[in-house]
Design a protein around this nucleic acid. Structure first.
Lengths: 240, 240
DNA sequence: CGACGCATTGATTGGATTCAACTAAGGTGG
DNA sequence: CCACCTTAGTTGAATCCAATCAATGCGTCG
């Protein structure tokens, strides 16, 4: 059901009782729809809600004054957009909806109230933000030192694993609603070059990509091509 | 004095009373020396102390199996190495001493004890880790989308500002103990190319670099060359 | 002194960008 | 219902920024 990704994600680190799960779900009663390509949050914003992706994909991004864009993270169902705002004060980057998104708006006060009485849940939220940070380090390695081919393979390995964490992978196949330009912006390449590298990935029978889905034909081969090691995602529990 | 950087850094977000400052300093009584190029922490470690740089420079890094290295952050006096370990469980990257480093080893229990009774200090620590995350996003933009010349300029702008935050800049001049290879590893370039770009930066009279010091001759010019905007460092107080 | 680390310079190569054209798919409105 | 338009993906050719390979200078330290 629609909150399964969020609950599954938190359950990776926290012991969630049935009651806890219901508590989390009850926080998400104010849900709003954001169309694709619309900003969910803009640089400089001081939101007073915490935003959680219930359904759809979004991307954190930063831009250069001359116009080029770097995507600094993808947000999938169960991900929090702005847990850092109460401490940092304002968004230092934007978040844009990649697909149409269902977003839960949780009043900060309500969240504080729940977490102040539930250490496990609080820790799960910190875990989520620290894993985001760890992912950023890995992305920096990816963009800074991996060749373009491995770079794209690595991104796919990560998304594969993250989608698995929230139960959205079946037979190594999962929704991947990204355009080649978005992949380019995430990997520091151009769309044209991404296109070419995708073709070599297809040519080597590692992946099948099209109509919004990615099938990993050869998971071990893809990991090898990427030099992928998932430790940086800090998954503490066996995946379903 | 030797703890000034640490206190200055925390004071950027927290109201530190004289007593608070003394409390923080008293945490640092177990200080150890790490020679240059030695690992302070290695990937996979599960340290039971929190490590704080009292003096010297260090670098967070990740490596590819084939050998190339990406520096994912520089640590200067006042910086914490491993605040995330209690939540994540283990280091997902290494930290190496760039210069000889004086490191304070704070027992985790002792830190917990102090922060549990001092919300301001706790928030300051969270601020520090979230700013690290923000810096990572900016670095990703830097490596992914800025041209090599601007990339290096941007790094220097950031280090300039961060050194200012902890009171180590005089007349736009501050210690910069990095080799060109280390700058290369931080910017995703090669040492040879860094060398050439440094020369153009020098040629344009933006910087003077040598014998372990960087002088920013033209701060505004350097910021412009870099497309630098310091908001991502989330400095909430006027600098001294 | 010799060895080593670091900085510098030149010549060459190559991976990725740029520019441009073209196809395919999908949605919209007359 | 089909002409039109937009968006995404694909392909080719030319160009360029940064990497690579290689050699040299220079200071420091054992």
């Amino acid at each position: 059901m629609r909150y399964a990704p969020l609950v599954a994600k938190l359950a990776i680190v926290a012991e969630l009782s049935e009651v806890d799960a219901q508590t989390v779900i009850s926080l998400c009663d104010d849900e709003r729809l954001v169309p694709a390509k619309r900003d969910i949050l803009t640089e400089g914003d001081r939101p007073d809600h915490v935003h959680v992706i219930i359904d759809g994909w979004a991307a954190r991004y930063k831009t250069l004054s001359e116009g080029s864009r770097q995507i600094v993270g993808f947000l999938i169902p169960g991900d929090f957009c702005d847990l850092d705002v109460p401490i940092l004060g304002r968004m230092d980057h934007g978040i844009v909806a990649v697909t149409r998104c269902h977003i839960a708006y949780i009043p900060r006060s309500k969240l504080d109230q729940v977490t102040s009485g539930n250490v496990g849940l609080l820790k799960a939220l910190w875990w989520a933000t620290l894993v985001d940070e760890s992912i950023l380090r890995e992305w920096l390695l990816n963009v800074g030192r991996r060749e373009s081919y491995a770079r794209i393979a690595h991104l796919f390995c990560e998304l594969h694993l993250r989608m698995q964490m929230i139960g959205l992978v079946e037979d190594n196949r999962f929704p991947l609603p990204l355009t080649q330009e978005q992949v380019a912006d995430a990997t520091g390449l151009t769309a044209v070059h991404v296109n070419r590298m995708l073709q070599t990935l297809r040519g080597k029978k590692l992946i099948e990509l099209g109509s919004g889905y990615l099938t990993v034909l050869n998971p071990e081969g893809l990991r090898e091509a990427a030099g992928f090691n998932g430790n940086y995602l800090h998954i503490k529990r066996r995946l379903p």
